[in-house]
């Protein structure tokens, strides 16, 4: 893990309110699947850095998928090439790169960049409407309005394919509410081999502020350092 300067080398709309932002850093360790980085805009006064999954990495160049949500994401997606960023990473634990079944809604797909296009893995990917889906190869799509793939919730799409889900690892990512809804819908067999990457409001991102804890069977754990990936059955959501 290091803190370094990054320069935006490309910033383009990817889908809906999601931008694909490429950042050339001064130096960066190689990240593993599912790891994230903290990003700040050093020239814009005090703000906490924000966590974003490292979608792709090639040496010192990191690609992020950033969805407009509040203050900092609104600014980031408007930043021009050449803007300086503060980057701390790579952070958090990671997914094993064994073949996997993946369930990702919206910008959470960014946690699975390394799995996209792999023949040994199966990806369920959903959004509100087809314009919100970034252009990737997934196996099953869902949209709430039915404009692409299954009409409705991603979890419901997944359940219609339940019989096809073999013994591969099962990975899911997203806000706690989405993961909770998923856990409440699936059977124990799936739950027992599911790993979930959680989102939490973060102060530091590297384990020191104790601001990002979630409740688990072994007490409060830091999402940024003990996670972001937890075994689903450990979580008390």
């Amino acid at each position: 893990m290091i803190e370094t300067q990054g320069i935006i080398v490309s910033n383009k709309p990817a889908a809906g309110s999601i931008h694909r932002i490429e950042v050339e850093t001064e130096r960066m360790e190689l990240s593993k699947p599912g790891q994230f980085a903290m990003i700040g805009i050093p020239d814009e006064g005090f703000h906490l850095n924000r966590p974003f999954s490292i979608y792709k990495q090639k040496e010192n160049r990191l690609t992020f998928l950033i969805q407009k949500r509040g203050m900092i994401t609104s600014r980031l997606i408007k930043k021009s090439v050449g803007t300086k960023l503060r980057i701390i990473g790579p952070l958090g634990n990671w997914f094993s790169d064994a073949p996997a079944v993946i369930v990702a809604a919206g910008s959470s797909i960014a946690a699975f960049g390394d799995f996209i296009g792999r023949k040994d893995s199966t990806i369920f990917y959903g959004a509100a409407t087809k314009d919100d889906l970034i252009d990737i190869k997934a196996d099953f799509f869902s949209t709430m309005d039915g404009s692409r793939g299954f009409r409705g919730n991603l979890i419901e799409l997944f359940m219609t394919k339940r019989k096809q889900i073999d013994k591969r690892n099962l990975y899911i990512a997203g806000p706690a509410a989405f993961i909770k809804a998923f856990r409440n819908r699936i059977d124990d067999d799936l739950a027992n081999r599911c790993c979930a990457s959680l989102e939490a409001y973060m102060g530091c991102g590297f384990g020191v502020c104790l601001g990002c804890v979630i409740n688990t069977k072994s007490g409060y754990r830091r999402v940024c350092k003990d996670g972001t990936i937890f075994s689903l059955k450990e979580l008390l959501l």
Binding site: Y201, G203, C209, L210, C212, N215, Y220
Partner: peptide
């Protein structure tokens, strides 16, 4: 410690209740 949410950003600062 306290239950989450434990921190929040504020104008030019943050509030913590770890």
């Amino acid at each position: 410690g306290n239950s989450p949410m434990r921190i929040i950003e504020t104008p030019s600062g943050m509030i913590n209740a770890i």
